[in-house]
Amino acid sequence: MLAAVLTAGRPSLEIQEVPDPTPGSHDLVLKVDACGICGSDLHLAQKYKTQYPGVVFGHEFCGEVVALGTEAEGYRVGDRVIGFPLAGCRQCAACLSGDVAKCATMTLNGIQRPGGYAEYVTVGAPEAFRMPETLTPEVGALVEPLAVALHALDRTPRAAGEPVLVLGAGPVGCAVALWARALGAGEVVVSDPMAGRRRLAESLGAATIDPLHEDVAEQFAKITGSAPRVVIECAGAPGLIQHAAEVADTDGHVTVVGVCLQPDTFTPALAVQKELSYQFVVYYRRRDFARTIAHVTAGRLSADRLVTDRVGLADLPQRFESLMKPNEDCKVLVRPHH
């Protein structure tokens, strides 16, 4: 099969012939319908490519079952599946509760196991979710980033109807904005320096702020009538943890979703003075996937608006490279068979 393989040069990805996957006893082999390009893949390719030679990225995928192991129960060839990319031991307390990210042996499609930037991918049957017939492959591939956003909001204490400030209008920031509105936030305000991303956030029903030309705290107060007590950082850029402390109200809460892969600093005295609480979050639980699938199936999340481009495998290396530069894309999907 064809797959986009991480290389040490430029472009970072190279389309290569690799062996077709064969299922283990509990596995499904999927013909990949769609796979999202995640910012974490871009960061890893920029910063840590020598640590992952030959890896096939892609952990936001869905597809059709084309082969299955002898003990892969509940599925048949032809079933459409959304992949839950985290796999653990399936026996510890974390796995049994659905919080697989906390399993000591957790592995991820796209890092420790081949991912969805390929014609085919393997996922464990216990890690699969059946995709409702009404969902398009594009929405199926958005379940993973939407589950990230839902998990972040679940870990964010807030009162009913309270306004929310989101820092960053990339895929996760826009997903948080979608979920915040669906879960009853009084007003969702998104801060991002890029005009195109602000326009996308506005199309999702959020108010926006340009942090390069506007005072974020002042503008938030003008829009909502109060200072930001709930701040969700979704960009992962250096300086944003400090920025969140600066704009948050006294007794406020900051949830850090963005993954910054370089050293960062902030002034603890400011957070201490305001008695801020910080919560760092990662991944999601199985119930976040299930709840996300239920919401998109019922039409309660306009998830397809997050998609700004689609590429086939042949065009993926150059498109992947372009996303490492400043851009106004939200979610770009890989369609390996299109």
Results as ranks from 00 to 15, higher is better:
residue 24 G to Q: 11
residue 45 A to R: 07
residue 29 V to G: 09
residue 18 V to P: 06
residue 39 G to Q: 15
residue 21 P to E: 07
residue 20 D to R: 12
residue 46 Q to D: 15
residue 23 P to M: 10
residue 27 D to M: 08
residue 36 G to T: 00
residue 43 H to P: 07
residue 39 G to L: 14
residue 45 A to S: 11
residue 20 D to Y: 10
residue 18 V to W: 07
residue 45 A to T: 07
residue 45 A to E: 09
residue 33 D to H: 14
residue 39 G to F: 14
residue 34 A to C: 05
residue 33 D to N: 14
residue 44 L to C: 11
residue 20 D to T: 05
residue 46 Q to I: 12
residue 35 C to M: 03
residue 30 L to D: 08
residue 39 G to P: 08
residue 28 L to P: 00
residue 44 L to Q: 11
residue 34 A to F: 05
residue 47 K to A: 14
residue 41 D to W: 02
residue 20 D to V: 02
residue 22 T to A: 14
residue 33 D to K: 13
residue 38 C to E: 06
residue 47 K to M: 15
residue 31 K to A: 10
residue 20 D to E: 13
residue 35 C to N: 09
residue 28 L to K: 01
residue 23 P to D: 04
residue 24 G to M: 11
residue 38 C to R: 03
residue 28 L to F: 00
residue 24 G to H: 08
residue 24 G to Y: 09
residue 23 P to K: 11
residue 31 K to Q: 13
residue 31 K to I: 02
residue 31 K to V: 00
residue 29 V to T: 01
residue 28 L to Q: 00
residue 30 L to P: 05
residue 24 G to L: 12
residue 32 V to Q: 07
residue 35 C to K: 09
residue 38 C to A: 02
residue 38 C to K: 05
residue 46 Q to V: 15
residue 28 L to S: 01
residue 30 L to H: 02
residue 31 K to E: 13
residue 19 P to R: 11
residue 20 D to K: 11
residue 46 Q to K: 14
residue 46 Q to E: 12
residue 31 K to M: 07
residue 44 L to E: 12
residue 20 D to W: 09
